[in-house]
Amino acid sequence: MGSVRNNKKAIAVFILPAAILFIVIIIVPIFMSAYYSLLNWDGMTTGKFIGFQNYVNLFTDPSVNFMKTLWDAIILAVFSVFIQLPISLGLALVLAKGIKGERFFLSVFFIPVLISSVVIGQLWLKIYNPNYGLLNAFLKAVGLSKWVHTWLGDEKTALMAVIVPILWQFIGYHMLLLYAGVKSVPKELTEAAKIDGATSWQISWNVIIPQIKPVIRMCIIFAVVGSFKTFDMIYVLTNGGPAHASEVPSTLMISLIFGRNQYGFGSAVAIIIIALCFIFAIGIRRVFKVEED
C-alpha cells in the first residue's frame, strides 16, 4: 500500500480521470465563456469580436441594470450571514448538547436541503398565492387584512418574499456542518469549563465557538458564494420579476442569453459571477486569518 502512495506514476494514473473531468467540465467552459464574453454574439450566427465592450455595457446600460442585481445578491448574502447562520448555529448548539430526540430534529431540519428547489419553490408559490395562499389566508384569519399582499407580484415585497424560502431552505445545511463541528470539540474542554463553573451560555460562547471557527468560516464562504450564484429558487418563484424587482446576476444571465439572444453579453455576467465568488471566498479566508494571528 505504502509503495503505491509513493509511486508518482501510480498517483498520476489515479488522479487522471477526475482531473480530466474537472478540466473538461469546469476549467475549459470557464475559459470558453471568457472568450464568448468578448463577442457580440447571438449564440447562433457568427460572433463579432468587440473587446471589453460587453463589460462596459454591463455597468452603463440602464436597460440591464446590472448593479441592481449585484445589490440584490449582496442583500441576500447579508441576510444569509447575519440571519440564517446564527439560526443554524443556535440549532446546532442546542442539538449537540444532546437533547431528547436529537437525531429526529437533525433529520427534520435537514429535509429542506434534500428536497429539490423546484418542489420547494412550488410549495412556496402556493403559500404566497394571492387568492388562496396560506400566508394571506392566515393574515385574514387573524384580522390583519390590511397586510394582505400579492407577495411575489409586488415590486416592494418580491425580493424579501424570495429571500425567505432561500434562507429557510439552507438553514438545515449549515446546521449540519456546524453540528458536526460542535460534536468534534474535545469533551475535556467543555468539561473543564463546567468544573470551573461556566454556564452553558459561557461554554458555548467562550469554548465551543472559538473551537469551531474553521467550520464557521466555511459556512460563511458557502453562504456568501451561494448568494452570488443563487438561481433555482428565484427562477421558479418570480424569474427575476416583477420589473426586475427580484433579479439576481444569474437570472439576468439567463434572460440575456435565452430571452434576448445576447450570448456574449450573458457570458460577461457569468464571468463576473465567477470572479466575485473567487474574490469573496479568498477575501473571507483572509479576514479570518488576520483574526487568528
Binding site: 404566497y128 398565492n129 394571492p130 387568492n131 400579492t150 407577495w151 411575489l152 407580484g153 409586488d154 416583477p242
Partner: peptide, 16 residues
Amino acid sequence: FEDGATGLSNDEAVQP
C-alpha cells in the same frame, strides 16, 4: 383585473 394578477401565472388566471 383581479388584485393579484401580478402574482398569478397563466394557468392560475385561466382557472377562475
